[in-house]
Amino acid sequence: MASDYHRPTRFPPTMFEGYLGAEDPAHVSRVAHDTAAALLARVREDPDPDVVARLVAYTDEHGIDAIAELWSHASAKSLPGALWRVYLLRALIRQDPGGQALAFQRGAEVSHTIDQVVAGAAIPAGPDEVVELADRILHGLFTGDFAVALERAAAFARVSAAGFASLADDADAADTTHPDRSAALTTRALRLTQLADEFASCARLWRRDSLD
């Protein structure tokens, strides 16, 4: 299958249209798994810096929807599911680096774990630092220890979740007339906690050679 992917950094629009129009869930799942495995194998076998850089920045040019069409319906505990979630985390960070940096910094202050160390973010972590960290984590999937990259993503998500939960408490105390802000922050904390659990599960599966 890998021989079919001579240019792993670009997916023609017609390819995505074909995937989107597929009606057989089993076919969609198989395509997701095959493309994720082929892409990762090709790049890790020959991690050309320019190719990796283009892969990391792929959604900046093509949008997150391009990746979503291909991998977002895959199981959370699968290779395409793991790749999709790291791209999604990166997109969330880049959409609101200031808010994400604030949440991460707050999480580092209120949580009593080594997660901020595992994540590898600078302390204090400003918007530029969290954006850079997201790129380094995604870069690590293609060139480094895949499980370690997922564990870093999990650690970042856990710290950020703790931060958003703390900020939600602040919002509750500061303004009881606008509960929507607190609810939104709480929802973000819960979603990041879920992401962290999924990253950690995928890392364990990868170490057992069971992530496919």
Rank of each mutant, 00 (worst) to 15 (best):
F104Q: 06
Q116K: 13
A91Q: 10
A36H: 06
A157K: 02
A36G: 03
T14A: 15
D50Q: 12
A76F: 08
A149T: 07
Y87S: 00
A103I: 01
T14Q: 13
P124G: 06
A38Q: 07
A161S: 15
D4W: 12
V118Q: 09
D175H: 09
P25H: 04
H73M: 06
D60F: 04
A32S: 15
L150I: 08
R30L: 12
Y19R: 13
R158Q: 07
A74G: 08
L79S: 01
D4S: 09
D48A: 12
A66G: 15
V28C: 06
H112M: 05
S78A: 09
D209Q: 14
D50A: 15
V86P: 00
P97V: 05
E45K: 12
L133V: 07
H139T: 14
T186M: 07
P80F: 06
L211R: 06
G163K: 08
R94C: 02
D115K: 04
A57W: 01
Y19A: 10
T35Q: 10
I137W: 07
L88E: 12
A184E: 14
P25R: 11
P12G: 03
E69K: 08
F156C: 04
A125Y: 03
W84P: 00
D180A: 14
V56F: 08
P13I: 04
A76T: 08
I67K: 05
W71V: 01
A200M: 02
T113W: 02
R42P: 00
G144F: 02
A147P: 03
I93H: 03
D128S: 14
A68H: 07
S29T: 11
S166V: 01
A53D: 14
L150M: 13
G21M: 11
R208K: 13
G107V: 01
D128E: 15
D24P: 02
A91R: 08
W206V: 01
A154W: 04
A26H: 09
A66N: 10
G21R: 13
R152C: 03
T9N: 09
H27V: 15
P179A: 10
A38Y: 03
Y5V: 10
L39T: 14
T186N: 11
Q105S: 14
H73R: 15
A189M: 05
A154Q: 03
R188H: 08
R44I: 03
D4H: 08
I114H: 10
G126N: 07
D65N: 12
E61L: 12
H33R: 15
V56S: 02
F156G: 00
R207Y: 03
A122K: 15
T177P: 00
R10N: 05
L102S: 07
P12E: 12
G18I: 04
P97D: 04
R54N: 06
E132H: 11
V31R: 09
A157M: 05
